[in-house]
């Protein structure tokens, strides 16, 4: 810039465009370099192997143990000040009912907090089960990938968090999460999602939903520790993630997951 201003002083009456452009070239060049070349690193986000050298949280949910009491969904709302209206959830429970004719009915009234009523008569039911849902803390998380300012990020131990002092509320991450785990907080205008109760983990406690589950259907542990409870859960059950084809690096593993679950 100093180049152009000093030249301007010398030829007040007749400034040649050449000088103007010399200075302009620096600015333009700067923008060009950033806008043209840097995105290429960004392209690699989902194609690179996830990090996770030290502790690496993984979650297990045993569908065969879930009784659909909805206590986890309720505990989550209370623990994390999630708005009570039925449009905002960090954690919820779905009831799947597969009828004899093959049709599938999925319900989650108020996220399962008030419990479930089976609306299909017994004789028409082929099978029915509950699926607790929460953030999968994906290792190649689409929500982290798309956040334009980096307000959504992944901790070194594999927890996907939102910095609400930084989030601009663009809702791109809400669109990008394949599992519907995010919502915009109606009062804050920023995004909110499961934090795996990191404030409790730091105190050595279990996340609220894990602690309250009466059947111990939820397990949390270190995937990098071969002797952890999560690894023995994975070893002893046939586990699956939801929507594996999307390659989100989901770290929420379900035992007894039916293919109907999406």
């Amino acid at each position: 810039m100093s180049l152009s201003s000093s030249t301007m002083k010398q030829h007040k009456s007749n400034i040649s465009r050449r000088d103007f452009f010399k200075a302009g070239t620096f600015i333009v060049g700067g923008i060009a370099v950033t806008s043209v070349f840097t995105p290429f690193n960004g392209i690699l986000f989902a194609s690179e192997a996830p990090k996770g050298k030290g502790k690496w949280y993984g979650i297990g949910i045993d569908i065969s143990k879930c009784i659909g009491c909805g206590k986890c969904a309720n505990a989550c709302k209370l623990e994390n000040n999630v708005p009570q209206e039925p449009f905002y959830f960090r954690s919820w429970v779905e009831q799947y009912t597969i009828k004899n004719d093959g049709s599938i009915l999925v319900e989650s009234p108020n996220g399962g907090i008030d419990g479930f009523m089976q609306s299909v008569p017994d004789e028409e039911i082929f099978k029915s089960f509950f699926v607790p849902k929460m953030c999968n803390h994906c290792a190649k998380s689409p929500c982290v990938q798309v956040c334009p300012v980096g307000a959504t990020f992944e901790t070194d131990d594999g927890i996907v968090l939102v910095d609400e002092t930084y989030c601009i509320g663009c809702r791109y991450c809400v669109q990008a999460c394949p599992y519907g785990c995010r919502y915009i907080h109606p009062e804050k205008g920023t995004v909110d999602k499961c934090s795996l109760c990191i404030h409790r983990l730091e105190k050595g406690l279990q996340p609220a939903c894990f602690e309250i589950c009466p059947t111990e259907a939820r397990i949390l542990g270190d995937l990098n520790d071969p002797d952890s409870n999560i690894n023995s859960f994975l070893k002893n059950h046939t586990c699956m993630v939801v929507k594996p084809h999307l390659n989100t690096g989901s770290k929420l593993f379900y035992n007894a997951l039916s293919p109907e679950v999406r």
């Binding site: 960004g42 690699l44 990938q145 798309v146 989030c167 205008g189």
Partner: peptide, 20 residues
């Protein structure tokens, strides 16, 4: 935006894997 006053963050601290 939920926080329009923070819009400039996109330019100041862009997260490069984001198309936005």
């Amino acid at each position: 935006l939920g926080k329009p006053l923070r819009a400039y963050e996109i330019m100041v601290t862009p997260h490069l894997s984001s198309a936005m």
